[in-house]
Design a protein around this nucleic acid. Sequence first.
DNA 1: GGTAGCGTTGAATCGTTGA
DNA 2: ATCAACGATTCAACGCTAC
Lengths: 399, 399
Amino acid sequence: MGILRTGTTSAAVRIQVPRTGRPALQSPIKAPRLEAAGLPLELPLDQVLVGDCVAALERLPPASVDLVFADPPYNLQLGGDLRRPDDSLVDAVDDDWDKFSSFADYDAFTRAWLAACRRVLKPDGALWVIGSYHNIFRVGAILQDLGFWMLNDIVWRKANPMPNFRGRRFTNAHETLIWAARGASSKYTFHYEALKGGNDDLQMRSDWYLPLCTGEERLKDEAGAKVHPTQKPEALLARVMLSASNPGDVILDPFFGTGTTGAVAKALGRRFIGLERDPVYAAAARKRIAAIEPLPPEAYSTAPSKRSEPRVPFLSLVEAGLVKAGESVTDEKRRHKATIRADGTLMLGPAVGSIHKVGALAQGLPSCNGWTFWHVERPAGLMLLDVLRGEIRAQMAAA
Amino acid sequence: MGILRTGTTSAAVRIQVPRTGRPALQSPIKAPRLEAAGLPLELPLDQVLVGDCVAALERLPPASVDLVFADPPYNLQLGGDLRRPDDSLVDAVDDDWDKFSSFADYDAFTRAWLAACRRVLKPDGALWVIGSYHNIFRVGAILQDLGFWMLNDIVWRKANPMPNFRGRRFTNAHETLIWAARGASSKYTFHYEALKGGNDDLQMRSDWYLPLCTGEERLKDEAGAKVHPTQKPEALLARVMLSASNPGDVILDPFFGTGTTGAVAKALGRRFIGLERDPVYAAAARKRIAAIEPLPPEAYSTAPSKRSEPRVPFLSLVEAGLVKAGESVTDEKRRHKATIRADGTLMLGPAVGSIHKVGALAQGLPSCNGWTFWHVERPAGLMLLDVLRGEIRAQMAAA
DNA sequence: GGTAGCGTTGAATCGTTGA
DNA sequence: ATCAACGATTCAACGCTAC
């Protein structure tokens, strides 16, 4: 039972990618801007590529991916002798040179894959990476050094963490995710209203409380052993994608493992690219993803946010007769008053200007949103201009 | 009322340091092991030294401190002004001490003070550092490079964080503390049982829920302005000291500020050394600490965790699989119907919003409690969302 | 004397679009 | 590229005032 399981029907629903109309899976799309540069034209969408992730990333076209989700290894598989996430394998090696070289190896690996990811990210793309205290500080520092712009660090509070058996430390009950834009000026995606709407109309905080991946969701082999040691819960990936990507976006995971990123992407109408070194994991991921039934688009499509709604000139309200030239507008407490002019400006004493300018002037503030400041008198009481604007927008949508 | 305030009596209670029997304050003790080495014999105990912390640290004898608590500058890198939706100005941390010209500068500064702290730490000593995503990753990486051995990262979940006013990110609702031993083989102090006893006999987790330092506890000047922009709550320091130090231990704070570390140390029968560059902060700290009445050791137990009913986002029900994305919700009489979306919002016709907003919309009312309005169809009949929320809360309480 | 209501505030990397 | 206009945006705790 998880966020991807549909409860009421078993009918497969083939989703359409909203922006292109193409089927979601197994059909590479072209990256048109790259043609002129003579670069590879196609992205390996909705596929799992087996091999070293840095090498694979370097074969992908630049600026072609909307979002990266990465769950990198704690210890370096390539180098061999790095310290493990738990301290048991690390004997008290007090050799400073050895310590430095171990961390240096991990840092070099981290720098390589982060830089390669940054190259394939679109200018407005973003990256998520998850880790624990063993590695996340090194990852975070390198990410800043490479020019990524940190947006939030997110704490995944585990509902059911493993206790600390020896009683020598606090229960390690969380992991840390870093959300960073490709650069400081990237216009990253964030579905603020959707997150707030799913959280009792309160802003979503940086601490998320979610259970571990267990039970049916956890992939097991024939012997009943878990296929992957660190499979992440689908709910975690779903929250990441719902908050920081759009339907149809390309989401790349350089450490694909058993494919949680791909499974959630498919369910939520996103495209994915999975890179995985281990063919056993890759095979398990492919099988898992093939069995996923995408959710109906209306269950995940992006709700319109105020920022994306069509602009309505105040003059349209005058023209539509929703407000009258010569009529007065006031603020909520009727402390300020101005007159509507036929050209869609307001007049306050000798001053004439937009609803925003005059609102700012009335309050002595540098700026003001006139739509949410001014009201008109109606039989039922004061009515906000923003409500009247909503009526215009409804008419526009119906037309 | 802060954690140090005694509620029932105003009588001063002079504590005794259990292991030595010496009065807690203003009497430097000898550091016997240092005599033979010809080093300074006395530690400036229970004092605030004004000056650069690295220079001051280098004048202290090595291996003489049990615990370091450090709240270094965060290097916030703020841009222009930030205003609340009501146009009031956010009082930002724009002090000179938080300005660094580059990451390299900040790293050099961090390496210097961390190395100096490591020198004065006893072999079995430990260090705590607090920071935000702006600096903590760099601090953590450098700390590892210097040979500190990480024990936990601790998340301070703020009960009342500042919201994200522009709706562009998740509410930055936590800060991170790193707890590290001087080295991998250090026999650090940890009062496992005490922490567990203060936590309903459950292991203390790595995520701590505590309010900001506000109200009476916050130091104000004559004009009513806060003395220090980033004063930490006493409860946070108390939990640190109770878990990771013994009565009589020497606790050094290289960024003493207005002396929360000293105030809590005095109250809990620890010795302190405070280093602070700004004489104004140092003077405020001295005055503050002088007014502290030490608690009798038996009077203090671990800060009680907040016991109010945890708020549950509707999204959690989707994530837990208690309701399905795409499933319908109805009111008691099945007159209204809406669809659950993967992000925890509802959809009713073209409208998308929280369970409350959409409930209000369905009924044409200004407001609605979605928890007690909407139901889902279950084999046994309609089930109220509020009942499902109860199940989630039961799980959370059991965790 | 309670309490409802209003104002203030907290370590913050907090726009977008079109001319 | 720069500039100006538009217009979107907050939660919990505390303290003071009015009733």
